[in-house]
Design a protein around this nucleic acid. Structure first.
Length: 582
RNA sequence: GCCGAUGUGGCUCAGUGGUAGAGCAUCUUCUUGGUAAGAAGAAGGUCAUGGGUCCGAUUCCCAUCAUCGGCUCCA
């Protein structure tokens, strides 16, 4: 058994302990399931009429510590279906689980430790009274029985457990660190974006600085795409329902689309939730020869999705956002080369942004074939094709059954940030469905009309969401090329005001984003202010610097880079910005 | 949408059934100081919004809006 399994067993045992404590304190509770998860464990309870609040967690935790001293191990009990049903006669949740186990023809087992026994398939720590000391109940949450929103909402208690005190402390410290890095806090502190009750939920307002970061990310992607022969297009924010009916999005998502009503016509309009259908209409606007392909369209337009209120979260999930969305219309024989190029571009961007990553091959859900449009044989072919492409490019990937889009399988890039959290960023999709539904064609060399293939491709996904991820990844310390203010000029007294102004203009003429702090604060205070504002480079200007036509350079990390002449300061900055180094 | 919590000056947070306070930020004045907070003063709030109970509500109750933690969803 490896370390990971051992930890899972410990946490699963902790879930049993939690249930035992809850049953002691609230005997009428109906207990359901309690698995180990990546970060710890949880147990779902139906507390009936009893109201539990976060303040009760301490009490439950104390009870767990009390009970565990008598837990010397877990005893497995094989029981008959009848015995199991009798034990849980008043618990419909457990009875449902028993039905399922019986249905699958698996043996029914209970595991007992101390006085507490629970229906369980096993996987426990052998000596809880010794091993299970370092746990903590984290939070209370609602969760649907069996994860289905049609079912009753249960009360879930989350906790975590480790073998060593040090590991628990490290985990809690990491959570603290993540909280400090919360992009919503950084966004406020650094004046990047805000929300207004009057504007509405999930509708971020970007300030000058936030808008600049957003634009800088887009410009970077645009630069790479232009070099690869992409053409930038622009399409309206609204379109008729017919467009989305034709694409299939209407059937699937119209409840999540904003309805727009004309005062003068009966047309049913929607704000666009994605760009693909509009791009098909640009393609369809004229005849295409096989020689014209590939046609690569890119569009940074705003998209609107009517997310359910409880799902909104800072910049992570909004109702107004954009995507670095591209659609490549090409022939079958061009798909491999186009995807190779897209993968290459993606790799470059991820390196620049400092993410490690792996890929997920997102395929159909074998249980629900009805969720997907198009010919099954084509799906089989494309899923296999996507897999071959990844293998050919030596890309590490894992399978994601059920993660495909309704019209195509996806090659999704999953990035890992500096706190070890994973984010789905890039995606590449080989789509046969949309070109057929929109009847897009080109004339091939044999004179016959054929459907092109539509490759959907995004690199950073959404610049707004990327801003969130980068802010947390770098704890607000964005690399120089992305920082909204790149250099703060700090004159020591106002005797240097004139010279500082001259330096400012010089830097600005090179396109560098500079802020001059001409306040009457002392140098220490100025350094503190701009360091907290995460300005990457601080340039101190005193009498000595002025005399030498130089600046004294210090980073926000506190590193002293010494005195630089104006010329060497500029080339130092320009070099760092051009290479996008961190 | 569902379960739970929260909403007090720009920010972080105290506090109260008898119409509110601190620190930081802001402004003014003094200070001209060499690598993470110089000093003093001033200004700033219909205590989220709308109802209700009460002689009286920021405080208690209800609704709405918004935010947070989850669940569900994610083209």
């Amino acid at each position: 058994m490896n370390d990971k399994e051992q930890l899972q067993h410990l946490r699963h045992s902790a879930a049993h302990l939690l249930a035992a404590a809850v049953m002691e304190l609230y005997p009428h509770t109906l207990r359901t399931i309690g698995p180990a998860i990546d970060e710890g464990f949880y147990y779902d309870f139906d507390f009936g009429d009893v109201k539990i609040s976060e303040s009760d967690l301490a009490k439950i935790e104390d009870k767990m510590h009390e009970l565990v001293s008598s837990w010397k191990g877990f005893a497995k009990q094989d029981v008959t279906e009848e015995e199991a049903r009798k034990a849980y006669a008043d618990n419909p949740y457990k009875l449902e689980l028993i039905d399922e186990i019986v249905g699958k023809g698996e043996p029914i087992t209970f595991y007992q430790s101390g006085d507490f026994s629970d229906l369980c398939r096993g996987g426990h720590d052998n000596n809880p009274s010794e091993d299970l000391k370092y746990f903590k109940l984290m939070k209370l949450a609602g969760a649907y029985w069996r994860g289905d929103e049609k079912n009753k909402m249960l009360t879930r208690i989350y906790g975590t457990a480790f073998f060593k005190k040090e590991e628990l402390d490290n985990y809690l410290t990491m959570l603290e660190e993540a909280k400090k890095r919360d992009h919503r806090k950084i966004g406020r502190d650094l004046d990047l974006f805000t929300f207004s009750d009057l504007v509405g939920s999930g509708l971020p307002l970007y300030t000058q600085r936030g808008a600049l970061i957003r634009r800088t990310l887009n410009n970077y992607i645009e630069e790479l795409q232009t070099a690869e022969g992409y053409q930038q297009v622009w399409t309206p924010q609204i379109a008729k329902a017919e467009l989305f009916k034709r694409s299939g999005h209407y059937d699937k998502y119209h409840e999540d689309m904003f309805h727009v009503k004309s005062n003068y016509s009966e047309e049913e309009m929607y704000l666009k939730p994605m760009n693909c259908p509009q791009h098909t209409q640009i393609y369809a606007s004229k005849m295409h020869s096989y020689r014209d392909l590939p046609i690569r369209m890119t569009d940074f337009a705003m998209l609107y999705r009517d997310e359910r209120p409880g799902e909104l979260n800072g910049l992570g999930r909004t109702r107004a956002f954009s995507q670095d969305d591209c659609h490549i219309f090409c022939r079958e024989d061009q798909v491999d080369a186009e995807i190779d190029k897209a993968l290459e571009m993606t790799k470059k961007v991820m390196q620049t942004l400092g993410f490690s990553y792996k890929y997920r091959l997102s395929t159909r859900d074998p249980q629900h074939p009805e969720k997907y449009l198009g010919d099954k044989a084509i799906w089989d072919k494309v899923e296999k094709w996507a897999e071959e492409i990844m293998k050919r490019n030596n890309i590490e990937y894992f399978d994601g059954p059920g993660e495909a889009a309704f019209y195509a399988p996806k090659m999704d890039l999953i990035a890992t940030d500096s706190l070890g959290r994973e984010w789905q960023l890039s995606t590449i999709q080989i789509d046969y469905v949309q070109p057929e539904r929109f009847d897009l064609v080109y004339t091939d060399s044999d004179g016959k009309e054929k459907h092109p293939i539509m490759i959907h491709r995004a690199i950073i996904g959404s610049p707004e969401r990327m801003m969130m991820i980068l802010l947390e990844h770098y704890a607000g310390n964005l690399p120089l090329w992305l920082a909204p203010v790149q250099v703060a000029l700090l004159p020591i007294t106002d005797k240097q005001a004139e010279y500082a102004q001259k330096v400012k203009e010089m830097l600005e003429s090179k396109g560098i984003r500079v802020e001059l702090d001409a306040s009457s604060e002392r140098l220490q205070a100025k350094i503190r202010t701009h360091t907290l504002q995460r300005v990457p480079i601080l340039a101190i200007i005193g009498e000595k610097e002025e005399n030498e036509q130089a600046v004294a350079v210090r980073t926000r990390e506190g590193e002293d880079l010494g005195k630089m002449s104006q010329e060497s300061f500029i080339s130092f900055l320009v070099d760092k910005i051009d290479t996008k180094s961190t």
